[in-house]
């Protein structure tokens, strides 16, 4: 009896068909300007400008293993010859284009609690965006201690949380190549330039002072599956006091990456932006990097 049922079941499954795929026209994309920015300690503000692109552009391709954007498309997405200004107090500074898509303001004072307004006019595509950001008070790490426990890198940190509501981003960097930050000879580099030295990023964490028990913060960041053979003897741990909008954006990025079921079955995430009429973030936070030499 069991054999008969199984035979019939197998035969019917063999006779079954998968339905043919059906095409659908979805034409709901409008191109927007995208803003990225970074404050370099000193008086420099970098703004990267690109444009979003439609998935129907055949210079974009995606497979299970890789996502490819053709050089041609990349070039087209970089915003050239835009009029980019940053205004603060009563001053307006025009940024210079360093390379296609990258603009710099080289003498913009970095004052805590100052409101900065970014204006971008992309005349080529007739697009205009505005974004505002307040430079939050720099919060410095008091102590940092890194050590391995099993294959988990543990980063202990302490800092003082100022009175107002704050959100933080904690970044950890290392360099597997033995040069620049993390090299055996840390005296060769300048900690303030760590962003430009091609270092490898290990992990980040976002913190909200709503979860702190006191203004004197001490915590541990765990970076699992960390192969300490990758590092020579030094790490950079950087703390930034970030805006709530950016904190929410980063939290969503973390959630989306972690939750496989949400990725498969859940509703998609439309990420927030502080750019009016555009995408991305105009950021004015100032990181406080600290060097740590590991005892291997």
């Amino acid at each position: 009896m069991k054999k008969i049922i199984l035979t019939v079941a197998v035969l019917t499954s063999l006779a079954s068909c998968m339905p043919k795929e059906k095409s659908i026209k979805i034409d709901d994309f409008s191109q927007k300007l995208t803003v990225n920015s970074q404050v370099i300690p000193g008086d420099i503000m970098l703004v990267a400008l690109t444009r979003s692109f439609s998935l129907l552009d055949n210079r974009y391709s995606k497979s299970a293993d890789s996502t490819k954007i053709s050089e041609d498309l990349m070039k087209e997405l970089l915003v050239e010859d835009a009029l980019v200004t940053i205004s603060y107090q009563d001053k307006v500074d025009t940024l210079v284009m360093l390379s296609p898509g990258l603009y710099a303001g080289i003498q913009i004072p970095q004052n805590a609690n100052e409101l900065y307004t970014l204006n971008v006019n992309d005349n080529k595509k007739n697009m205009h965006v505005v974004a505002q950001s307040t430079m939050l008070e720099k919060v410095e790490l008091k102590t940092v201690n890194c050590y391995m426990k099993g294959d988990t890198l543990k980063v202990d940190y302490t800092f003082d949380d100022p009175a107002q509501r704050n959100n933080y981003m904690l970044n950890v960097y290392y360099n597997p190549n033995g040069s620049g930050i993390g090299s055996a000879n840390p005296s060769n580099w300048d900690v303030s330039n760590f962003l430009t030295q091609g270092n490898t990023y290990a992990s980040y964490a976002t913190l909200s002072d709503q979860n702190f028990e006191s203004s004197s913060v001490h915590g541990t960041m765990n970076i699992p599956d960390f192969d300490d053979a990758n590092i020579s003897d030094t790490l950079i741990v950087s703390l930034s006091n970030i805006s709530e909008d950016y904190y929410n954006y980063l939290s969503l990025r973390t959630k989306a990456g972690k939750n496989v079921l949400t990725q498969v079955f859940g509703e998609p995430i439309n990420y927030p932006s502080n750019v009016q009429g555009g995408l991305g973030f105009f950021l004015t936070h100032s990181p406080d990097p600290k060097l740590f030499i590991m005892n291997k």
């Binding site: 979805i26 994309f29 191109q31 927007k32 444009r51 439609s54 974009y60 960097y173 990023y201 998609p268």
Partner: peptide, 18 residues
């Protein structure tokens, strides 16, 4: 809710692009 486009963002550490 279909994905219709994409844009490039520097990652939080400014060491790569998402």
């Amino acid at each position: 809710t279909p994905q219709v486009g994409a844009y490039a963002m520097m990652n939080s550490s400014m060491t790569g692009i998402d």
